Simulated scan of single mutants.
Amino acid sequence: MGGIDGIGLGTFGIYTFDFEYQPAAQMRESIQELEEQGWRAFWIPELLGREALTHAGYLLSSTERMHIVNGIAQIWSRGARWTYGAALLLADAYPDRHVLGLGFGGEPHPGITPLTAMRTYLDEMDQLETVNPAPKAAVRRILAAYGPKMLELARDRTAGAQTYHVNVAHTAQARDILGPDAFLAVEHPVLFESDPGKARAIAREHLNPYLNTPYNVAKFRRLGYTEEEIGGGGSDRLVDDLVFWGDLDTIVGKLHTHITAGADHVAVQVIGVEPGQTAMPYWRELAGALSPQHVTT
């Protein structure tokens, strides 16, 4: 399917907020252990304080083979000129190991739609001229995209799309819009808990911010969930679709449903870990359960 997968991200990667709470030395040790386990892609958000491109550069400098993906760098947090310059340097210093994921997070500009803002940002990046040397390996970029128009923009202007907190049906819809050649990565939360009551309680706590923000609520409506399912902490159906919980075999089996539906890559976010703690024990289990060709090719 998409081109990025063919040059090393693999079928499964890790998405985490863990590093927001870790000092630099612990981050370095953690990312190096993950590389030794065979993971090839590590996704980082930009939400709790770490600046996206600095964060990516540090992790790239701490590893030899790991692909670092900004999931996402917020377009309203920095000008297109500076994003372009940082991405050029990372592409030059670490060929084919950085993926610039762009999204419309950050302080919004009143009266400007996310689609217009993203199109304008890409236009600015594409029109920039710089004295900085061009990297031998091109900058690789993708967009956070959910609705049809943003997915079309990702298809037409970048290597592809990243989705976040969606169900398997959305993955199939996204693949139809993107076509066979664009890259599609799907983030999905997982929870190592087999008791339904406990699992859904933890999952609802995790989903709560997303069930109460306008863009996410609109996304869930498009996915076919009713107001009653979205409200009140989320219905069992919604929670079970958006958080894969259970034992290791159950989780791994469910993750593969996104691949069957058309994803090139699934970025696995382990939840249920307290801030300041690490999901490393679970990452080790997942690395062992996912066959090597799925982790490393």
Rank of each mutant, 00 (worst) to 15 (best):
I259D: 03
T250W: 01
V239P: 10
E229L: 09
T213E: 05
T257V: 02
S235Y: 10
D236L: 07
R222C: 05
F220L: 14
G234K: 11
I202L: 15
T250D: 14
L242S: 00
N212M: 07
P196M: 11
K219W: 01
H256E: 03
L223F: 09
P214C: 01
D241L: 13
R222P: 00
L211Q: 03
D195G: 13
D195Y: 14
G224L: 10
P214R: 05
S235E: 02
N208F: 08
Y210S: 06
G232W: 00
L207A: 00
V243M: 11
D195C: 12
K219M: 05
I251L: 10
H258Y: 06
H258F: 10
R222M: 05
L248K: 14
Y215G: 02
T213G: 08
A201H: 14
H206G: 10
L238T: 03
I259H: 08
T213I: 07
N208H: 02
I259L: 12
L242K: 06
R237V: 07
V252I: 12
D247A: 13
T257D: 09
N216T: 12
L238K: 02
E193I: 12
S194T: 14
R204T: 00
G231I: 06
S194I: 08
K198P: 03
H256K: 13
A203I: 05
I202K: 14
L223V: 02
Y215R: 05
L255N: 00
E227S: 04
G231P: 03
F244I: 05
L248T: 11
H206K: 08
G197I: 09
R237Y: 01
A203L: 06
D249P: 06
E229K: 14
D195I: 04
P214T: 06
G231N: 15
P196I: 13
E205D: 12
G197C: 15
P209C: 04
H256F: 12
K219Y: 00
V252G: 01
G197Y: 07
K198W: 00
G253P: 04
V239Q: 09
T226A: 10
H256N: 07
N212W: 06
L223W: 09
T257A: 12
R222D: 03
E228N: 09
R204L: 00
G224C: 10
R222A: 08
T213S: 02
I202R: 15
K254T: 01
Y215T: 04
T213K: 05
W245P: 06
L207T: 05
D236S: 15
G224R: 15
E205I: 06
R204E: 00
N208V: 00
D240H: 08
R222V: 03
I251D: 00
P196F: 03
S235Q: 10
K198A: 15
G232V: 03
S235A: 04
D247W: 13
V243H: 03
A218K: 15
E228P: 00
D247P: 12
T226I: 04
E205A: 14
A218F: 09
A201V: 09
G246M: 14
L223Q: 15
N216G: 06
G224K: 14
V252K: 07
H258Q: 03
L255E: 04
E205H: 07
V243E: 05
V252C: 01
K254W: 00
H206P: 00
R200K: 15
P196R: 11
E229D: 12
W245C: 12
P196D: 10
I230T: 04
R237W: 04
V239D: 10
P209V: 01
V252S: 02
V239G: 08
L238Q: 05
I251H: 03
V217I: 15
G232Y: 02
D236F: 04
D195P: 07
